[in-house]
C-alpha cells in the first residue's frame, strides 16, 4: 500500500479509536460513581464541535507560541503514529515524543498568561520526575530483548513469549505512565480542578478541539505501545480488546481515587518507580529473567 495512505489511515484510526476510548473512559468513571454519564461518542463529538465554536486569542498571550504549541502537540503525536504503528521504528523516538509532550504541558500553560496555566506549568516541571520510570522501563525492555526496534521486539516476543511474563515490574512502570496520562488521574496534577483546566484553561474553541484531536491520538498511541512491547504480536482484535480492557482498568482506578497533592503525587510515582526498578534489577541478576 502507498505509504501516505497507510499513514493517513493509521492517523484516522488513532483519532477515532482514541476518541471513543476516552469517551468510554468517561462513561466507566460515571458508572462507577453511579452517574449516568455522557454517551461514549461524546468525546468525539466535542472534538469536532469545538472546530466551529467562537474562538479568540487572549490579549495577554504570547502569540506565535500560543497557537504554535497546539501545532507541536499534533505534530509529535503524528510522529508517534509513524514511529509506532506505521514504521515500527526505535522505541527511543517514542520516548522523545513523550518528552515533548511534557514541554507542551509546560508551555501551553505559561504562554497564555493565565495564572492557572502558569501554576500548571510549574507543576509540569515538578512532575518531570515521572519520566524516570519510563526510561527505566524502556531500558529494561532493551536489556532483555537486546534491541530498541519495535519490529524486532515483536519478533523477539513471538519466539520467547510476551515480555509481561518476564519483566512484569517494568510493565507496571509503563502502566503507571498510562494512568498518569489518563483523564482525571490521581497523578494528573497539571490538570487538577483547582487550576480550572490546568494548562488548557486558555485554549478554548478551535484550539481546544485541536488539542482534543492530538490527545485522542496520544491515548491510542500510548496504549498501542504498551500492548505491543509487553503483550507480543497481537491481531487487530487483540489490540481492540486490550485497549478496552486497559481503559476499563484506568477508568476504575481514576473513578475511585482522589487527586494527589503535587508533592504526594511525585513521591508516589518515584516510590513505585524505584520499587519496580530495583525489583526488576533483582529479577535480572538472580536469573528469574532469562
Amino acid at each position: 500500500m502507498n505509504l501516505m495512505a497507510n499513514i493517513l489511515i493509521q492517523v484516522i484510526i488513532a483519532f477515532l479509536a482514541g476518541s471513543l476510548l476516552l469517551g468510554l473512559h468517561r462513561k466507566i468513571m460515571a458508572r462507577v460513581q453511579r452517574r449516568p454519564g455522557p454517551p461514549i461518542i461524546q468525546h468525539l463529538l466535542h472534538s469536532l464541535k469545538f472546530f466551529f465554536k467562537e474562538t479568540g486569542f487572549p490579549k495577554t498571550a504570547s502569540k506565535p507560541f500560543y497557537i504554535g504549541i497546539t501545532f507541536i502537540l499534533a505534530l509529535i503525536w503524528i510522529v508517534g503514529v509513524i514511529a509506532g504503528p506505521v514504521a515500527h521504528d526505535s522505541l527511543l523516538i517514542l520516548f522523545g515524543v513523550y518528552a515533548v509532550y511534557k514541554i507542551v504541558e509546560h508551555n501551553s500553560g505559561s504562554s497564555s498568561g493565565s495564572p492557572y496555566g502558569k501554576l500548571s506549568c510549574v507543576r509540569a516541571v515538578l512532575s518531570a520526575a515521572t519520566e524516570l520510570p519510563l526510561f527505566a522501563a524502556i531500558i529494561f525492555v532493551y536489556l532483555v530483548t537486546g534491541t530498541m526496534n519495535i519490529g524486532e521486539i515483536i519478533a523477539y516476543q513471538s519466539v520467547h513469549g510476551p515480555l509481561i511474563f518476564s519483566i512484569p515490574l517494568a510493565a507496571l512502570m509503563f502502566f503507571m505512565l498510562i494512568i498518569t496520562k489518563s483523564p482525571y488521574s490521581p497523578f494528573a496534577i497539571t490538570k487538577d480542578k483547582v487550576l480550572i483546566s490546568g494548562f488548557e484553561t486558555e485554549h478554548y474553541g478551535l484550539l481546544r478541539g485541536f488539542m482534543h484531536f492530538s490527545e485522542s491520538i496520544a491515548w491510542y498511541v500510548m496504549l498501542w505501545v504498551f500492548l505491543t512491547i509487553f503483550f507480543g504480536p497481537l491481531t487487530a482484535v487483540g489490540y481492540l480488546v486490550g485497549m478496552i480492557v486497559i481503559t476499563f482498568i484506568t477508568g476504575f482506578i481514576n473513578a475511585t481515587t482522589p487527586i494527589f497533592s503535587p508533592n504526594h503525587s511525585v513521591m508516589t510515582q518515584i516510590t513505585i518507580g524505584a520499587i519496580c526498578f530495583f525489583g526488576t534489577i533483582l529479577m535480572i541478576f538472580t536469573g528469574v529473567v532469562a
Binding site: 495577554t60 498571550a61 502569540k63 506565535p64 504554535g68 507541536i72 505559561s110 504562554s111 497564555s112
Partner: peptide, 16 residues
C-alpha cells in the same frame, strides 16, 4: 523548531 519559534515570539503578559 522551538528555537525558531522563540526567535519570533513576543513574551506574554502574565496575569496574577
Amino acid at each position: 523548531g522551538f528555537t525558531a519559534l522563540i526567535a519570533v515570539s513576543k513574551p506574554e503578559t502574565q496575569v496574577e
